[in-house]
Amino acid sequence: MTAQANHLLLRRLVEREFSQRYLGSLSGPAWALLQPLLLLAVYALVFVQILRVRLPAGDTPLDVVPFLVAGLWPWAAFAESLNRGVAAVPENAALLAKVALPRSLLVVAPVIVAFAVHGVGLVVVGIALALWGRPFDASGLLPATVAYLLLGGFTLGIALLLAAWNVFVRDVGQILGQALTLLFFLSPVFFTREMVPEAFRVAFDLNPLSIYLDLIRAALLATDVDLLPAFAKAAAVAAFALVLGLAVFQRLSPHFEDFA
């Protein structure tokens, strides 16, 4: 297929992935805006009103809701990308058995959609927080977006790697849910590296997700940190993951049908 035809196919796959999320629901894409707001309300209720969580960080305690928001939405994009991306190849087995298409597109489409949906969600929630009077820094939007896109590249690489692996060893898809839950608590989403016991901090240091989550959070919450070294690291890790994922996927995808 030509590059032009591939581009069109990717567009259709993205459209389909998107409409599948909201298929059959009455308000359709309006949910894309409503869901994050409802989620925000739930977090605000639980963490501020019920648990009364205060985050000790530096001189001024961080406001817990913006802190959570800046971590949870990127995390959701990451986790959903992996879940959907790894499932994409088996879900389309019937199609793959009949039509020759660039299989990587099947993984790329759900990653794009997950990052788009949760990116929009993050913006919606950010506006809501700003209106609510919480510190959500508009000037951090550009660096945060760049960091978010780098996370997208990193995620795509991992998704391609796992999707290819899963075709051969189905256990990958089975274990993914549990692995993501574990990773969730080893990533700076609910708490920062400083909040966990010394012994566990090494997990945060080794976890590449920390780079992206810390970066997005730092940009959005306007913490006074020099972001440049972190950006360099984020870009390098994303490039490595992407190259590795693509190489493994391209090498193995001609054999997918033999193992389907």
């Binding site: 297929m1 030509t2 032009q4 035809a5 581009h7 069109l8 196919l9 567009r11 259709r12 796959l13 459209e15 389909r16 409409s19 599948q20 298929l23 059959g24 019937a94 199609l95 009949k98 039509v99 298409l101």
Partner: peptide, 25 residues
């Protein structure tokens, strides 16, 4: 029509199938 998705309309499936067959935009 083996690649058609049952939940989507004929028109939607046509768009998808056309892309799969390598139609130009």
């Amino acid at each position: 029509g083996a690649g058609f998705h049952p939940e989507f309309s004929g028109r939607d499936n046509l768009r998808m199938a056309a892309a799969l067959m390598g139609f130009a935009p």
